[in-house]
Design a protein around this nucleic acid. Structure first.
Length: 547
RNA sequence: GGCCAGUUGGUGAAGCGGUUAACACAUAUGCCUUUCACGCAUACAUUCACGGGUUCAAAUCCCGUACUGGUCACCA
């Protein structure tokens, strides 16, 4: 019996050949240098921040080279597939404005001519390629049971040998096709393994776009390419898909480097040109002096949805990821206030080879800078959207009078150097709660405040029509009259005075806001209005006299 | 254990044979005609994991050691 006949017995229903698919999926007519790449997740519905980093990197490189970025769903592991998983992934990425030129657009639909873009619908294609391998004696059915495989592994561990199916352990590698056919007819379960042409003692060199030259021993493992259920393994699906979808670059997490020899060998067996590879280092976390990969189970910040819930703008997260991808991005961003991330020219060479500790402080800082560049209207809209989803009570209060809220958001904003104290949408409530009567709580303590002085000031000196300079001149004059001179004067002769203007402002601030720190007092008073200020002084008097 | 990679301050990092070892975050202090924030200024690595070598000269090149990470499934 020939290998062809064996292939026919294993795959009786496969009628097409490789050539058919080669023609069906023509080479892309992209320009020289255009990067065709993909994001290829399993539909678990969960987007890991590391996966976001990898996909964002792919998106950026495809975009800046006028290439193609497509979404392929890798659902060959039927056990892991989750209901609505594809939609969840697409939504999470869409939130970050990471969009695709081709690929799945929801659970069942897709766009593009290189599909299907979901692996469970490509079984026939994979089997065509596997059939070819069997027919040419380059792959074979393997009848090793799970127990046998375990035994082999134990033996290898015991004798400190390399683990895997190779050499004498590849029991069915050279089985006569006749006997193989007989076993299949008897209903024995099998998988298909590659008959690896490699030798562990020979080296292969390959180039990784971020790591440079790498050298490995050749792969000599007869790796599984088709599982018992007839679906291909990841390695084999990668070969077929990335070849047929005419992928030029594979940008993926660093955990894949070690399978590079396998992948390269697969391309070599078919005589296909392998794509270029770029392996992205993982995001790390320092957990009790133990550095480790960000973990789905232990770290909430691992899920991309975490940032959404926390109220950190997606754009800020992207900004942070961009500085991880190319650390020189940050400096550029600081200098180019009007440009967007996509205007920056990213380079593979600048991608760090080692994993970075994920730094929430830094993210916070970047987010503050991002907020400081937004207009009051932009912040208002985005915040309202966030509150509607996560804080309905404040949403109602916040949106009751949009102009009022916008005025608050505008405090110290439209100036050369805007305030930088908002990192999250949820900060706004904490920062400005005292501006909303519905939220304001009169929880003053007795702080030795001269309330009569303040009442005198509001009653007889303060006018809501004053501009900032006038306001300051007036309050300074008033303070001086009552024994509170300028800070300078007070510092030179402290024994002559009760305090300085600053102290008057502090008392005023405390009574108005219950806080010792706040944004600009003048603006706060201006927005609040004289009547409400008076009301708060009254309240203070009532409450503190009872303490 | 085998294979692969990485190691520059508290953090992200620049540097690629001759530099005062950039820059950003964090921290500390001071200055900014009211606090905070912003901004500005200053401080913070006598040294680039360690040991050896090459060289007039090494964070930069070579070798070894250590540590860290990844990987070794009919998972991706």
């Amino acid at each position: 019996m020939t290998y062809e006949q064996l292939a026919e017995i294993i795959f009786p229903n496969i009628k097409h050949d490789i050539k058919y698919y080669e023609e069906k999926y023509p080479l892309r007519e992209t320009k020289e240098g255009a990067i065709v790449t993909r994001y290829a997740p399993s539909p678990t519905g969960f987007v890991h921040i590391g996966a976001l980093l990898a996909s964002f990197t792919g998106y950026l490189f495809a975009k800046q080279s006028n290439g193609i970025f497509y979404l392929r769903i890798e659902d060959t592991d039927t056990k892991r597939t989750v209901e609505n998983g594809v939609n969840k992934i697409i939504k999470d990425l869409k939130d970050f404005n990471i969009t695709f030129n081709e690929g799945m657009i929801n659970e069942t639909e897709e766009q593009g001519i290189y599909g299907p873009y979901i692996q469970s619908k490509r079984k026939e294609i994979y089997q065509t390629f596997i059939k070819f391998l069997v027919a040419t004696g380059k792959a074979y059915p393997c009848f090793l049971s799970e127990e046998e495989l375990n035994d082999i592994r134990n033996r290898q561990e015991k004798h400190k040998e390399r683990i895997g199916c190779y050499g004498k352990y590849a029991k069915y590698r050279d089985l006569d096709p006749e006997q193989a056919a007989q076993k299949i007819k008897n209903g024995e379960k099998y998988i298909i393994r590659l008959k690896s042409p490699g030798s562990f003692y020979k080296k292969i060199k390959c180039k990784d776009l971020v790591r440079g030259e790498l050298e490995f021993p050749e792969n000599d493992l007869d790796i599984p390419i088709m599982k018992k259920d007839g679906l291909p393994t990841y390695h084999f699906a990668h070969l077929v898909d990335d070849h047929l979808m005419r992928t030029t670059h594979v940008i993926r997490a660093d955990e894949w480097v070690s399978s590079l020899p396998i992948h390269l060998q697969l391309f070599q067996v078919f005589g296909f040109k392998a794509p270029k590879y770029a392996h992205i280092s993982p995001l790390l976390k320092n957990d009790n002096n133990q550095v480790r990969k960000l973990s789905k189970r232990k770290d909430p910040e691992c899920a991309v949805s975490y940032y959404h819930e926390m109220g950190i703008p997606n754009e800020a997260v992207k900004l942070y990821l961009a500085t991880i991808i190319n650390s020189n991005f940050e400096e550029w961003y600081l200098q180019n206030k009007d440009k967007s991330i996509e205007d920056f020219e990213f380079s593979f060479k600048k991608v760090s080879k080692s994993g970075a500790l994920f730094d929430l402080d830094k993210l916070g800082n970047i987010s503050k800078t991002y907020f400081s560049r937004l207009s009051k209207d932009e912040i208002y809209d985005q915040t309202a959207k966030y509150l509607k989803e996560f804080d309905l009570e404040f949403f109602t209060i916040f949106t009751k009078d949009p102009d009022y809220s916008k005025a608050i958001l505008n405090i110290e904003r439209e100036q050369k150097k805007p305030r930088k104290d908002i990192a999250k949408y949820s900060d706004i409530k904490k920062l400005f709660y005292f501006m909303y009567d519905d939220l304001f709580v009169c929880n003053w303590e007795n702080k030795n405040i001269n309330i009569n002085l303040l009442e005198d000031y509001i009653q007889n000196c303060y006018s809501e029509d004053d501009d900032k300079d006038t306001w300051y001149n007036k309050i300074s004059g008033f303070a001086l009259e009552h024994g509170y001179p300028s800070v300078k004067e007070y510092k030179t002769n402290p024994e002559n005075y009760k305090g300085h203007v600053g102290n008057v402002c502090e008392m005023l601030r405390y009574v108005i806001t219950t806080l010792t720190q706040s944004p600009d007092l003048y603006e706060i008073m201006h927005i609040l209005g004289k009547e409400r200020i008076k009301g708060r002084l009254e309240e203070y008097k009532k409450i503190v006299s009872n303490i």
